[in-house]
């Protein structure tokens, strides 16, 4: 064996390389089959960050298609319901520059919920068919109503309604939605009050 190698060094080297290639190729091939991941993992991760309003304002028929488009190189700033914070998250995940929201697709608005003016509802069930998250309750020729806690505010039920009895009502801002604001960098009238006047005067 050794003798053969020393006699035909070129052929031996070639043989060794081809052999290694075959072995690793087989290993990789096996790994590809054995450890295959279902679906597109990046698109899944992107989809996880999208607000799931399914409103289609991004120009795609829902969040998942937009996620797949982003995975394929589409711009990340087309989702108005997600707004700046979703763009920041996407930029983080994909390690790209965070762009300002593309105004063409709409503005970031206060979250709204649909409200059906019930006396006017004719029970056509058109809104139910439009709602992507089954947030509307009703049956043919019966009055319909929106389950507020499930409504994502996507607007999709408004157009189909033949008698125009659905309003989008911006959600009330109240105690439950109040958050500490960032300090105003200019005026610096901070809510936290340090006992400055006697600073350093040890107790």
């Amino acid at each position: 064996m050794l003798e053969l190698i020393s006699h035909y060094p070129l052929a031996a080297a070639l043989l060794a390389l081809v052999g290694m290639g075959a072995v690793f190729g087989a290993l990789l091939g096996y790994a590809d089959v054995r450890f295959r991941t279902e679906g597109d993992p990046i698109a899944d991760q992107i989809n996880n960050l999208l607000p799931q309003t399914q409103c289609g304002q991004c120009g795609y028929p829902g969040c998942r298609p937009y996620a797949e488009a982003i995975a394929g190189g589409e711009a990340i700033n087309k989702c108005p319901p997600g707004g700046e914070s979703t763009i920041a998250d996407l930029a983080d995940l994909l390690d790209v520059e965070a762009l300002p929201l593309d105004q063409e697709h709409g503005e970031e608005k206060v979250k709204a919920v649909a409200y059906i003016r019930e006396p006017e509802c004719i029970g056509c069930t058109k809104c139910i068919q439009a709602c992507p998250v089954d947030a509307i309750l009703g049956a043919a020729k019966q009055m319909h109503t929106v389950i507020v806690s499930e409504c994502t505010g996507c607007d999709l039920c408004v157009d189909p309604c033949p008698v125009d009895c659905i309003d989008m009502i911006p959600q009330a801002q109240g105690l439950h939605s109040w958050r500490w604001p960032l300090p105003d960098p200019v005026s610096s009238v901070a809510a936290i009050i340090a006992t400055d006047s006697n600073r350093g005067q040890a107790a």
Binding site: Q52, A135, E150, R179, P181
Partner: peptide, 27 residues
Amino acid sequence: QYYRAAKADIVLHRENHLKSEHARGRF
């Protein structure tokens, strides 16, 4: 004040994420 605002922001973010998970489940 920065920390309070940042905490509130993170909490809001988590809540929104939970909500969108919920909406995705329903969708």
